[in-house]
Design a binder for these strands. Structure first.
Lengths: 246, 246
DNA sequence: CGCTTCATTGACCCAAATCAATCTACGTGG
DNA sequence: CCACGTAGATTGATTTGGGTCAATGAAGCG
């Protein structure tokens, strides 16, 4: 069965989707559009009518505080839904920006309601997906709350490596990670300056290479050790079939 | 229409529940049982067959790291489901403990699946509830990632005050908050010692009173100001009808 | 009434923030 | 093809919010 979009693939790794379910899901991404890196998909305060499905590219959820501080609360990869919350909850309480050029598909609120009412399996899969997002968030919290800068950075790298791998974005020991050091710091609750020092140290210890927005993990053992990383919270099913170009 | 359990009430504040839906939901809490403060409802690594619904009392999600550090990632109040994740995801990646004596109801995995398939409105409401949990988690992350100890503590107090109020647990300007300073610190990514100093300062400034596990917010303006608190992320609908004794 | 758990306080230390340059890579217009 | 402007990366010097360590007080309770 031909999988035409990464959401279908993601949900399919959790539940057995019927032919109808697959049709429904694949249909959702029928009208992809392209967006440029740096743009915001959606801003805090908006009341979107559509849920955006990320098909290719990287995005990130973030919130800017009154004094200008920014916290990035999640990174989004292909197959992730950007703003489920809102379509159910109303106003966005944070923004979503693009870290790279991306392809997205808009899914109307009505479509989601319709699909979830008609196909309970999909409803459950979407719920599951939300629960995974929540698990990730819990781990970020643990990470920021309890680990020091070095271990924390290691943990984020491990997570992103796993998630990138799952959607076929890892080549060998490296993958494109379109983050500036400032954005990395904002994801970790660290300053850009300190983030830089952590990276320097990781380089010095031969753990990584990180240049031109490409991260190579040279010593995965060391990295996982520092992070005390256990990927099970991601509930990933590694797949052999990669996601092809859309 | 008589509301017999706080989950029904919570979900009812989001969607219009039919008579059937109400029956379904109320039926879920038919066999409550009591648990003692300090016990764990569930432990990391377990694979529960049931979802636990908290009917009365306080609980908290937490994870203990290898070196003994602990991070509390959520507080649970009456009406909250404890471990939806797991019933869908498998193994628990954290534990849930009780901060007070509590009444809980176990709901089997099958029941959840059955109810969500038969009543899409309930399915959607459950999804919504998960999305609210996620919003709370995002705010905790922002809080720990960007605010200093004082503001952070203020924010948590505001949140707990709002949530306690919603389920009718606030009297005047005070409510029972069964947390030790160490647990409070573990919720905030702070040491017990530093948490104590923050509380001293808040007392000194006439913001709070906190003794005998009871927190009074004397200066709500000041508290909200420090926290830059905006309750909208909780998506609460304040109700006049209180939850009666179960 | 003697434990044990929690709260409080003081002295000292350190990881990370802050402040301030400088350096580098790269896109752009001439 | 090159000078320049700008965003991002580095590095050093200094400060500081919170952590750590270590006692000492309460307070609840079997």
């Amino acid at each position: 069965m031909r999988v035409t979009n990464p959401l279908t693939m993601k949900l399919g790794s959790f539940v057995d989707l019927s032919k109808d379910d697959l049709d429904h899901l694949n249909h959702l991404a029928s009208f992809p559009s392209r967006m440029r890196s740096g743009r915001d998909i959606i801003r805090e305060g908006e009341r979107p009518e559509n849920v955006i499905l990320l098909l290719t590219g990287w995005a990130y959820r973030y919130k800017v505080l009154a004094d200008g501080r920014r916290q990035i609360v999640a990174h989004l990869l292909p197959g992730d839904l950007c703003d489920t919350h809102v379509f159910i909850l109303g106003r966005m309480d944070h923004s979503i920006g693009l870290l790279s050029d991306a392809t997205v598909a808009a899914i109307s609120r009505e479509t989601i309601i319709e699909v979830t009412e008609r196909a309970p399996t999909i409803a459950r899969a979407l719920w599951w997906s939300t629960l995974v997002d929540e698990a990730v968030l819990r781990h970020w919290l643990i990470n920021i709350g309890q680990r020091d800068a070095y271990d924390r950075t290691a943990h984020l790298f491990c997570e992103l490596w796993e998630r990138a791998a799952q959607v076929g974005l890892v080549n060998g020991n490296a993958f494109d990670l379109p983050l500036t050091q400032e954005q990395l710091g904002d994801s970790l609750g660290l300053t850009a300056v300190h983030t830089n020092r952590v990276l320097q140290r990781m380089r010095g210890e031969g753990l990584i290479t990180f240049q031109g927005k490409r991260l190579a993990i040279l010593d995965m053992e060391g990295m996982r050790g520092a992070a005390a990383f256990d990927p099970s919270y991601l509930h990933l099913v590694r797949r052999n079939d990669k996601i092809g170009p859309l």
